[in-house]
Design a binder for these strands. Sequence first.
DNA 1: TCTACGGACGAACAGTGTTCGTGTCAACTG
DNA 2: CAGTTGACACGAACACTGTTCGTCCGTAGA
Lengths: 233, 233
Amino acid sequence: MKRKSSSREEWAAQIEALDAPPVRKEPITVDRIVTTALGLVETEGFAALTMRGVASALGTGPASLYAHVRNKAELDDLLIGTLSRNVSLPTPHAGRWRAQFADVCGQLRDEFLRYPGIAQAALAAAPANLDTLRITEGLLAILLKGGVAPRPAAWTIDAALLYVSAYTVEASLRRHPDHDEDSRVVDRDEILARLRMLPVSRFPHTIEHADELNSGEGHERFEFTLQLLLNGL
Amino acid sequence: MKRKSSSREEWAAQIEALDAPPVRKEPITVDRIVTTALGLVETEGFAALTMRGVASALGTGPASLYAHVRNKAELDDLLIGTLSRNVSLPTPHAGRWRAQFADVCGQLRDEFLRYPGIAQAALAAAPANLDTLRITEGLLAILLKGGVAPRPAAWTIDAALLYVSAYTVEASLRRHPDHDEDSRVVDRDEILARLRMLPVSRFPHTIEHADELNSGEGHERFEFTLQLLLNGL
DNA sequence: TCTACGGACGAACAGTGTTCGTGTCAACTG
DNA sequence: CAGTTGACACGAACACTGTTCGTCCGTAGA
C-alpha cells in the first residue's frame, strides 16, 4: 500500500537523481549522529535527547541509528567524549598549578553548561573513556608538577571531576523547571522569602544567614569549592 | 463483560468480608506509597522505581497513586525527604566540628547507598525541601560552632552535599551495569589492566600511577575528599 | 433515606529505547 | 562484464514509561 502510494515520490526522487547522481542522500555516520545530538541537547536540553529526535533530525527513523551506535548509553558516552576533547590542557607549570587546575575544571564546567543536563551522562560514563582519561592525565600532570604526592593527586582529581559534574547537573536542573520565566533573580528572592518563613525555633542559623546560603554570583561558589580542595592539599 | 466474568470473585470477596468486616481493604496513603517505593528501590534500584511498579506492589493500578502524589518527581522528593529524616544531627561541639561534619555526611552517604541510585533524585530535589534543609541547618550549626565564617560555611555545606550525591550516584551506577558478576574486584583489575594498555607516549603519568588512580578501600576516598574540604577552610 | 463527594481504578494516550525482518544499493568476485 | 554478497537503511512492532479521563462505588452529611 505504502509501496504504491509513494510511487509518485519515488518518481520525483528518480528525476532529481538524474540531475545530481553523485550526492546520493548523504549516508549516516557516527559523526553526523553526534553533531546532530549535540545540537539537540544545546537547544532543547538533555531530556530532549531521544533516539527518535536524533533520527528525525537526520530525516530517518530510529532503527537507522543502531547500525552505528550500540545504545543510547553509547551515544551519551560519545557525546561526553566529544565535549572532553574540547578542553585544552596546558603544559604544567610548577608555580601556577592551582590556577591551571582550576582553569581546566572551568573549561569542562563551561562545556557541560553549554549543553544543559549532559553532565548526567558524565556521571554515568565509563571511567575507561579515552577522552576523559586524557583530562585525568592532564590534571595529574599539573598536580604532580605542583609537588603533590601521587595518591592525594589522584583522589583530588576524582573529587574535582565529580564535583564539576554535580555542579553542572544541578545548575541545569534548576533552570529547566523554571520553564521560561525570569529564572534566576525571582527564584533567588523566592527562595530567600521561603527561608524566612521557616520556624525560628528549628532553623535559627538558616534564617540568620539566609542571604549567605543564597549568595554567590556567577561561578563564585564553583571557584570557592575548587580552591577549598586545592588548599586542603 | 468484566462485570459478569468477575462476579465469582466478587462473591468470594463478599464472603470474606463476612469474616472480617473491619479490615476494609487497607486504604492507600502517602506513607504506604513511600514505604513501598523505598522497598522497591532497595531491592531493585532506582531505575526500577516506576509508578506501575509501586502500584502493582500495592495491588492496584498506576492511576490510584495520583490521588496522593502529584508527580513521580514529587514521589522522588518524598523519598529523599524520608531518607534525610533518618540522619541524626549531633549537638555541635566546638572541638570536634570536623568529625561531626564528616559523620553527618557519612550518614547521608550510607542512606543513599542503601537505596542504589536514589541520589539522582537528590540532585534534582528542590532545595526548599524541609527535610534536607534540616540537615543544612545542622551542618551550619556545626561549622559555625567550629568558628567558620557564615559564607564559607554555607558554601562548604553546599559543596559537601553535592559531593555526597555525586559520590553515591557514581557508586550505584558502577555497580548496576556489572549485572550480577563478581562486581568490584575483577572490575578493578580489569580497569587497571586497561590503563596499562594505554600508549605510554600520551598517558605517561596515568600509567605510572595506575594503581593510585584505582586505590581506595571502602570509603577512603570519600573521607579524604571531606577532610580536603574541611582543611581548606 | 437520599444525596453528594472524594478516593479507587480500568482504559487509553503519547512518548520512550530497542529489535526484527525486509528492502536496496555498492562493491567485490568469477 | 554479470552475479553474488554483505553492509547499511528503515518500516513496523514490542514492551515499557508517566500521566489523564471518565466511571464506579462506598462512605459521610442533610
